[in-house]
Write a protein that binds this DNA or RNA. Structure first.
Length: 294
DNA sequence: AATACAATCAACCGCATCTCC
DNA sequence: TGGAGATGCGGTTGATTGTAT
């Protein structure tokens, strides 16, 4: 007999969530946070397993979700990141504020894969379909970045030094979500040698000046590719957004109001937690987000 | 208008890893 | 140190919706 899931074992409800269930889960998390997911169903009065509640929250109920169609920038970034990370959907999604791994994965499988094939590119290797794969990492990168961009540069120690130079404490009133420090990346040309960082991270990191053959886009002031998705200018941007924030960050202030009432549309309010309204020209990067690359 | 097919996406499954005792 | 439970992740499924015939 086949092994059955936790929901089956406990004879719990499965399938689509009703609006009543959503409301129960929302209300519970708004009041108490999720704490231990395994205890959420019982405390919230739901006949679901904790896993199901967690998934529903992460993929659908979280107020910071962007939803709606993916922008061209997001699409380019997904392709870019996939060429380096492969099917690491959670890592890819962590660089796309308001997007879930499930959403990114679905988008990839239903749309991008097909689009790349139409362009004669193998979505798995990011190489032309006619070429046979060799070394996975190297070939994947070479299909997207030039040889020059993949050239090795400084030692890890030198890279650490560069990153150290960019480190800055977070402002007191900055909603840091547990972070104590950020890297400051000034606008304009890249503030540090991305080639070095690439080397530090195992050679698969794109240089700041790299332009994917698929994207060909770099916005001024965006020293890292995912900065393109942050606030337009002068804003604060914390990578790895989904993992860093907790429910209290949303429910404790006006941000929650903005994101829930305007959910579904792309609007400025979704970034309110990361935009202090200051006129800083520098973007702030989550240290943990950077370390994900290494 | 009815049907078939394709596309999309929410949800589930099972495995790997983490955490706690 | 090992086991159990919790959590996270990627792959897959299946219901729903959209489009073509």
């Amino acid at each position: 007999m086949a092994k059955q899931s936790c929901c089956h074992k406990k004879r719990l409800r499965r399938g689509l969530w009703s609006p009543e269930e959503d409301e129960k889960l929302m209300n519970h998390i708004a009041k108490y946070g999720h704490g231990s997911w395994s205890s959420v169903p019982k405390l919230a009065g739901l006949e679901r397993c904790g896993k199901s509640c967690r998934l529903r929250w992460i993929n659908y109920l979280r107020p910071d979700l962007k939803r709606g169609t993916f922008s061209q920038e997001e699409e380019d970034l997904i392709i870019h990141l996939h060429s380096m990370l492969g099917n690491k959907w959670s890592q890819i999604a962590s660089q796309l504020p308001g997007r879930t791994d499930n959403e990114v994965k679905n988008f990839w499988n239903s749309y991008i894969k097909k689009k790349l094939r139409e362009r004669g590119i193998d979505p798995a290797t990011h190489k032309p379909l006619t070429e046979a794969p060799t070394s996975p990492t190297t070939t994947a990168c070479r299909a997207v970045f030039s040889d020059a961009e993949l050239n090795p540069t400084p030692t890890p120690a030198q890279v650490e030094q560069m990153l150290e130079g960019l480190k800055m404490p977070l402002d007191e009133d900055w909603p840091n979500n547990g972070m104590s420090e950020c890297y400051q990346v000034p606008p304009g040309p890249c503030a540090f040698d991305m080639g070095a960082l690439q080397q530090h991270c195992g050679g698969a990191f794109p240089s700041a000046s790299s332009s994917s053959t698929l994207t060909g886009q770099q916005s001024p002031g965006a020293s890292l590719p995912w900065l393109e998705l942050g606030p337009t200018d002068g804003g604060h941007y914390a990578g790895a957004l989904g993992d860093e924030l907790r429910w209290s960050d949303y429910f404790d202030g006006a941000c929650f109001q903005a994101t829930t009432t305007l959910q579904g549309a792309q609007q400025q309010g979704q970034y309110c937690a990361y935009d202090t309204g200051k006129d800083d020209d520098a973007a702030q990067l989550d240290v943990h987000g950077l370390s994900n690359w290494c």
